[in-house]
Design a binder for these strands. Sequence first.
DNA 1: CGCGCGTTTGACGAACCTCAACACCAGTGG
DNA 2: CCACTGGTGTTGAGGTTCGTCAAACGCGCG
Lengths: 244, 244
Amino acid sequence: MSVAHAIETPSPGPLHPARCNGCAHLPACQAAGYGRSELRGLQCIAEPAGLLRDGEYLYRPLTPFHAVYAVQAGMAKSVAVDRAGRERVLAFHLPGELFGLDALWLGQHDNAAVALGRTQCCRFPYAALRELASRQVEVQTHLLYAMSRQLHRQHLDAADGSAEQRMAAFLVDLHARREALGCSGAALPLPMSRADIGNHLRLATETVSRLLARFRDAGLLRVTRSGVELLDMDGLRHVGWGEP
Amino acid sequence: MSVAHAIETPSPGPLHPARCNGCAHLPACQAAGYGRSELRGLQCIAEPAGLLRDGEYLYRPLTPFHAVYAVQAGMAKSVAVDRAGRERVLAFHLPGELFGLDALWLGQHDNAAVALGRTQCCRFPYAALRELASRQVEVQTHLLYAMSRQLHRQHLDAADGSAEQRMAAFLVDLHARREALGCSGAALPLPMSRADIGNHLRLATETVSRLLARFRDAGLLRVTRSGVELLDMDGLRHVGWGEP
DNA sequence: CGCGCGTTTGACGAACCTCAACACCAGTGG
DNA sequence: CCACTGGTGTTGAGGTTCGTCAAACGCGCG
């Protein structure tokens, strides 16, 4: 969501309250739908959550649920910890994607949200959100949509198949989500570690490495540091759904 | 949810509208929270979805989203079909559990809901639900909670680990959900096929069979036809989270 | 009774994990 | 500027788990 404290000089615009002006990440937010005029109320209750460094936490497990979050720039991951202490990367969050709503049910977070690289976020206090939703049907609907989208995403992540398929599908999905935000181009930054990718895809980090090498040798992508450059999206897509 | 068309003679009660009286499944619904007085409005908009036979569909992929559903008695599964035609069992639904809300985002179902054995369901037309939610904050909150719970469930399903762990965790989870509905006891009916279980847990059906046999030999359960009888819940729990 | 389907059990092979060594940076301090 | 160092990523060899193939079994049903 597009609400950062105005870091640079605010330049008033017609569509957004003062807090949003000057936010460098407004385009991403608008692409995510938060620029729609019915939702302007959302921007009024958003608070900046600061500029986080790599590895810093937005919230931790077993802490009370007070707000939902959105990335403005950068990336974040949600990490669950099972009782044996093993971590599980549940999702990666791109700008404009709401997360933390899963804590509503228990009233406390059961997973952690961690910044991947320099990441800017904003938070929506739940009390204000709830109050707003009770008055504005659009906000209410928007929340339901956001959760529905999240459920839909997890269905995708549940996909079975070979390591190769999951890896390719992962890259294709990330690329598609970036495109939806207006970030077109072959470059796909991967600020998370190989361990994170592997954990999320249920693969060993070595397997992630090997698969990227295999894709590289097949001419599907180029491995750059801090990411990949996608050369053959169609090829990747075909690998992703087990070449029909 | 406790709303079936009154199949038997309605006998007016103080807590439920006429449509709910006579519903044989009211206790399960109440246990799921749908008996709470604030939610009585929900019962007014519910419609019976009939008594389904094994394998019958509540909805299919690519059909428009018009309602959300709940099992009253029996069990249902959600099945996604990827573009290669492979099926994926996303979840099993017990009485009182709401499902179909994931279709909100796209406006159409991307998966199917199928009855497992004789199953009775009711449906909540989304238009009425939305209208009710806009007037009653409790209903609104209830929907958000239901989705939050579903997200939470999927986090559990995302758990990695050995086949043994996933299988044990699956049984423990089903048992816990049944207990929450007031169905205590060691008997755990499994109306779905081994193939369904395996699909959901990312295992071959043969592996499911072998694991059940292994659990049986370890004295953790007894395999009955159409289900299992849980003999050592603690043992299963320990297997489930990789014996700490 | 015989047929058909779902389940069970066994043998084998492959995909992927584990272990281990190495290469590659980035940051740090001399 | 360079060497050092720790962390991350890459590559290779061997093992284990689990999937695949195949066959027998049991149960329900016509």
